[in-house]
Nucleic acid binder design. Structure first.
Length: 837
DNA sequence: AAAACTGCATCTCAA
DNA sequence: ATGCAGTTTT
């Protein structure tokens, strides 16, 4: 047991055990040895975790000995905040939490790799210097394309996406290229092994890691380096892991290394390393999760981590939290009935204290526009609802109390249009969106090169952007030169004048470019008076001196949406400034060090402040998650994917697109396991709802340009018969679900899958034009204010009338019927159109 | 070397 | 329908 170095909180049992159920209370107070908390949806999981942390602190456990791991920054931030709130009333509450580590798996790994970079030198797959770059999917894909070219493999036969996914699988299973190769027998896997080798070599050359590497390399580090392992295990004595059902193999091994359970970690027989001072040598590891909410199997999550917890840690204590505090009885019943269809499942009883409430509604709609309209109408009605005095659930729902969930991001479009058209405020949970914009990625690529000149992917991205006379030929020659002399591309740029085949003009352009980069980081030293004074200053200088700014200023005179890009670049500067103001290297909320802690940062003491800041900034950008963007204080409806919804709750929830091939997804139809995961996904969606739930399915949906007949999701027929309200709005088909609810489920639905093109209204009652259907025509405030029916002139084709516009993204296209030239489809982004009327 | 055009593949989910 | 890459045009 630890010596008490802090003053215990006055009376912990009063303050932190107050108003808990027996099960919750025992989860909070069971502090020693392995503990598995099976927390059903809505069972007060976060409440238990935060109170458990507060309780540990109240016992006098030093805060720096506690490590809590989550999957998203948002979850970590919320947890920190709630712990702080719990301790607010205590004297010296700041000191009580100083050094407490609550962070994500990936952030923790990023920090450990940085700190122990020097310890990894000489390790077989040693790769990182402290300023490594974290590659996102785009970067990985760019790198993979180069690798494939180098190996002379056809990229249509070896799709970067598929190859990367195979490699990701290997990494999640902690397989090195050699290990992967050893168990490859056929041509396909042997080739993947070759690619894996080359890809790793390329990453290493760029001093870069991918997301999987963060975990993999940290596991490697802790397995191989006794110093790092001992320091880490010595510091953290109490480990807590949230959403344990979503951990993959790498995360599992990492957790065993962190908590010092060496037998399970593959370290084996290392003497003297016995981290975590638990009773009877048992590690103090507490994991929280729910097998019914395991929805990341496709990402390598291994549900057996949670199912086998008791055999991994013999003598583990198990506590089940089954009582639901969130949803009304009918909603919980729907969720329960659905999830019972999963056969590979340990049943647990769900029960709620929230009796009463209205049953969920299932709406059958005509098509996606109709669906969007009905959902928005439903939400509007809830919002405008008069308040009955006797029903507390009906009380004043505001926009922020509502959410719409869908299976994939493509479905958000129609819903956005409908919300916009109805004047309802909405936000889309896409935290990464900003940093994925082209112009922002460009600016960040400059910053990455400043921090890590070996980063080839970023360097290639920006070397001629904006155009600075360094063309493909020059780069190809420099590539050859670099390969010949075993230099990084950036070093080759510096030596361009020594390459025979580079023209003097090209040399000059290259020198100007390298000179610019060198001026920002003083040739990599970050020393001297000429380097930027602050991070915001650096970002600002990069944007202006790279001429990125000028480029968009010039462009924005011609193209309206280039003005937005300029705006985004300016926003990046202020984001850097905000970061700078918040960031305190001596008190990182994620990984704070405390005076008493022996593991001081070892690489940052002599590091120039600007570099420290830049590293932290780039890291924080690389690790933002979509879910991080959800701002509960915004007065708007939240639109998000079902995956992003996990862990959240809303008084009113709408789930759209419950159709075969969508939810469950096409890919899952063939496999029983994947089908069950889709069912869990639906379960997660339903259990987010506190009081109101609507589920919808559209009879027709436009897929890839084609309007297709759909089949209602089997999950709809798996909901409790009589436990829901069915509302069939597809009045063109009044016989739609006549056998609704009968045994056999999905088979009772109309299974004809006729292409809509052959659909003839014929004798059917004509469906009234839905307001939503025209929305794309009136909404499209496209860049040229073009609308169907407008008359335009094209320099080449002459005068014509716009027949239709397909808006969306940057590549909006218009089909125009020209008087002389016939029908043409033009890309609005490029076409030089003059609007006549 | 940049702008415009054409063909081809594509639609999960995401740290 | 849309986004990408490679190609043709200016």
């Amino acid at each position: 047991m630890q010596t008490m170095t802090m003053n215990p909180v006055s009376d912990p049992s009063e303050r932190f055990l107050d108003a808990l159920t027996d099960a919750q209370r025992s989860a909070v107070t069971h502090t020693e040895g392995p503990l598995l908390i099976l927390a059903a949806a809505g069972s007060g999981k976060t409440r238990v975790i935060t109170r458990r942390i507060a309780y540990l602190l109240s016992l006098g456990i030093p805060p720096w000995q506690i490590l809590a791991l989550t999957f998203t920054n948002k979850a970590a931030a919320e947890m920190r905040e709630r712990v702080a709130t719990l301790l607010e009333a205590e004297p010296e509450s700041d000191r009580l939490t100083r050094g407490l580590t609550v962070t994500t798996f990936h952030s923790l790994c990023a920090r450990l790799l940085r700190r122990y970079a020097a310890h990894m030198e000489g390790m077989p797959n040693w790769r990182t210097k402290p300023d490594y770059t974290i590659y996102d999917m785009d970067d990985q894909s760019a790198l993979m394309k180069r690798v494939l070219k180098e190996l002379e493999l056809d990229k249509s036969q070896w799709q970067p996406r598929a190859v990367l996914s195979a490699i990701s699988g290997a990494k999640n299973a902690l397989q090195s290229p050699d290990e992967f190769q050893a168990q490859s027998s056929d041509y396909y896997s042997n080739t993947i092994a070759r690619i894996y080798h080359a890809y790793e070599r390329a990453l290493r050359a760029a001093n870069a890691v991918d997301f999987d590497d963060l975990l993999l390399l940290t596991v490697d580090l802790l397995r191989r380096n006794e110093t790092a392992r001992a320091e880490v295990q010595d510091r953290w004595r109490y480990l807590m892991i949230d959403e344990y059902q979503d951990t993959n193999q790498a995360q599992f091994i990492l957790s065993t290394l962190l908590c010092g359970s060496n037998s399970a970690s593959g370290v084996g027989g290392v003497r003297g390393v016995r981290g975590v001072g638990g009773v009877g040598g048992q590690p103090n590891v507490c994991v929280v999760g729910d097998p019914d909410q395991s929805i990341y199997g496709w990402r390598g999550a291994d549900i057996s981590n949670i199912l086998d917890f008791e055999s991994t840690y013999p003598g583990a204590h198990v506590i089940a939290l089954g009582q639901n505090f969130r949803s009304t009885a009918p909603i919980l019943a729907a969720a329960d009935t659905l999830i019972r269809n999963n056969s590979k499942r340990k049943h647990k009883d769900l029960f709620t204290t929230r009796e009463g409430g209205s049953p969920p509604t299932v709406v059958l709609c005509q098509d996606e526009h109709h669906e969007a309209k009905l959902i928005v109408d439903w939400l509007r009605a809830l919002h405008d609802q008069a308040l009955p005095d006797d029903d507390p659930d009906a009380s004043s729902l505001t926009w922020k109390d509502m959410a719409i969930f869908y299976r994939n991001n493509a479905l958000s479009r129609v819903l956005e249009d409908e919300c916009r058209g109805a004047g309802i405020p909405y936000v889309i949970a896409r935290g990464t969106a900003f940093y994925q914009r082209e112009e922002v990625k460009d600016a960040i690529a400059y910053l990455r090169v400043v921090a890590n000149t070996a980063d080839d992917v970023s360097l290639r991205r920006i070397i001629n952007k904006p155009a600075r006379k360094i063309g493909k030929t020059t780069i190809d020659r420099l590539d050859t030169f670099a390969a010949h002399h075993e230099l990084s591309l950036f070093k080759a740029l510096h030596a361009a004048d020594q390459a025979q085949d580079i023209s003097p003009a090209a040399c000059k352009a290259v020198a100007k470019f390298t000179g610019m980069i060198d001026s920002w980081n003083a040739g990599g030293t970050f020393m001297g008076s000429d380097i930027p004074a602050s991070l915001a200053d650096l970002v600002s200088r990069v944007i202006s001196e790279s001429k990125l700014e000028d480029h968009y200023i010039a462009a924005s005179k011609k193209r309206e949406d280039d003005a937005q890009k300029l705006e985004n670049l300016r926003e990046l500067v202020s984001s850097a400034r905000d970061f700078e103001l918040e960031f305190d290297p001596t008190n990182d909320p994620a990984l704070a060090d405390v005076p008493a802690d022996p593991t001081q940062p070892i690489d940052e003491a002599d590091t120039p402040p600007l570099l420290v800041m830049l590293r932290a900034y780039l890291e924080s950008i690389a690790l933002v998650a979509d879910a991080d963007a959800i701002d509960p204080t915004a007065g708007a409806i939240t639109l998000m994917t079902l995956h992003a919804a996990k862990g959240l709750e809303f008084p009113a929830v709408a789930m759209v697109g419950l159709e075969e091939g969508l939810l469950p997804a096409q890919r899952a139809l063939a496999s029983e396991d994947e089908l069950e995961e889709e069912r869990r996904l639906a379960f997660v969606g339903i259990t987010r709802a506190m009081s109101h739930l609507t589920i919808s399915s559209a009879r027709y949906r436009t897929h890839r340009g084609l309007r297709e007949r759909t089949i209602p999701s089997r999950f709809i027929s798996e909901l409790p018969e009589g436990g829901i309200t069915l509302s069939d709005q597809t009045d063109a088909y009044d016989d739609t679900a006549r056998d609704w609810g009968a045994p056999g489920g999905g088979a009772d639905f109309d299974n004809t899958n006729t292409p809509a093109s052959r659909f003839k209204p014929g004798n059917r009652k004509p469906t009234p034009k839905l307001p939503g259907e025209l929305s794309y025509e009136r909404e499209v405030p496209d860049i040229h204010n073009l609308a169907a029916g407008a008359t335009v002139r094209h320099p080449q084709f002459g005068v014509g009338v716009v027949a239709s516009i397909s808006s969306r993204g940057m590549n909006a296209r218009a089909t125009i019927e020209f008087r002389d030239a016939g029908k043409k489809t033009l890309v609005l982004q490029y076409a030089r159109l003059e609007i006549l009327e």
